[in-house]
């Protein structure tokens, strides 16, 4: 433990410049040399416009790091949480079933949902209103984690574009529903055509449905582990193409 006196002296010393620094002129000249080196390199050297600006190699030692947005855009890392999209099914309806899981978990409380009822769909609940306030969103991705239906994703590789009004940042379902459709073998709409009991269902132990009088073709046996398939992963290009942006 240093004595108080010692500490005080050191503190005083640190606020002092050394004799060399107090000459100013050599230090100014050295500083100017640095400035000039950068100036000349960047003046005469050609800029490397690669968007990977951390690894740019300009000619003649050019070190300009500016990213000329929007012409040059930094590549988003894999797994970047872009603006949300509501994942569609093959028939264009949202996968979302208006379960409010995302709205419940959302720490910013920026998701608002109202549910409606389909009469003739394998899943009878769907969102009539699904709104995300992108201004409030803290881009935490918890909604994606919470969703039991893989219906909301942040794989668009786009950040929220600017708007002229606050209202413009409140994305309705029409703006959110985009991108390539996703289905899993266990999804109800692949297994039944509406909410009524399918008459041709097949169960290994039971044969065909009891109420059916029609003979039906036995189906392919289901591969193992299909209730827990790996989710399909899309590249940025595929998302762009499918959402037409």
């Amino acid at each position: 433990m240093a004595s108080t006196k010692e500490i005080k002296r050191t503190a005083e010393e640190t606020s002092q410049l050394s004799w060399y620094q107090r000459l100013f002129v050599p230090e100014v000249i050295r500083g100017l040399a640095v400035t000039t080196r950068h100036f000349l390199r960047n003046l005469f050297g050609g800029r490397d416009p690669s968007p990977d600006f951390a690894y740019r190699k300009g000619s003649l030692g050019n070190q300009v790091a500016t990213l000329q947005y929007p012409e040059e855009r930094a590549p988003y890392p894999v797994g970047y949480r872009g603006t949300h999209r509501l994942v569609p099914r093959e028939d264009g309806k949202p996968r979302c079933v208006a379960c409010y899981m995302c709205a419940t978990v959302c720490p910013a409380q920026c998701i608002y949902i109202e549910a409606g009822e389909y009469e003739d769909d394998p899943i009878e609940k769907y969102p009539t209103v699904f709104v995300i306030d992108q201004l409030r969103c803290v881009v935490c991705g918890l909604c994606v984690e919470a969703c039991p239906k893989d219906a909301i994703r942040m794989d668009t590789y786009q950040h929220t574009p600017p708007e002229y009004t606050r209202e413009g940042f409140i994305y309705p379902i029409e703006r959110l529903l985009k991108g390539p459709p996703v289905s899993y073998p266990s999804d109800p709409w692949l297994r039944r055509k509406d909410s009524a009991q399918p008459q041709d269902q097949h169960f290994p132990l039971h044969g065909v449905a009891a109420h059916s009088t029609e003979p039906v073709e036995p189906r392919e046996p289901y591969p193992a582990g299909r209730n827990h398939p790996a989710p399909p992963v899309f590249t940025e290009e595929e998302v762009r193409k499918a959402s037409g942006s």
């Binding site: 010393e13 640190t14 410049l17």
Partner: peptide, 18 residues
């Protein structure tokens, strides 16, 4: 003077670890 810049950091700039 400029060329003979003291290579060592001037002592007064080094904060003691203590």
């Amino acid at each position: 003077l400029t060329a003979l810049y003291p290579k060592k950091q001037p002592a007064s700039l080094v904060l003691p670890g203590r």
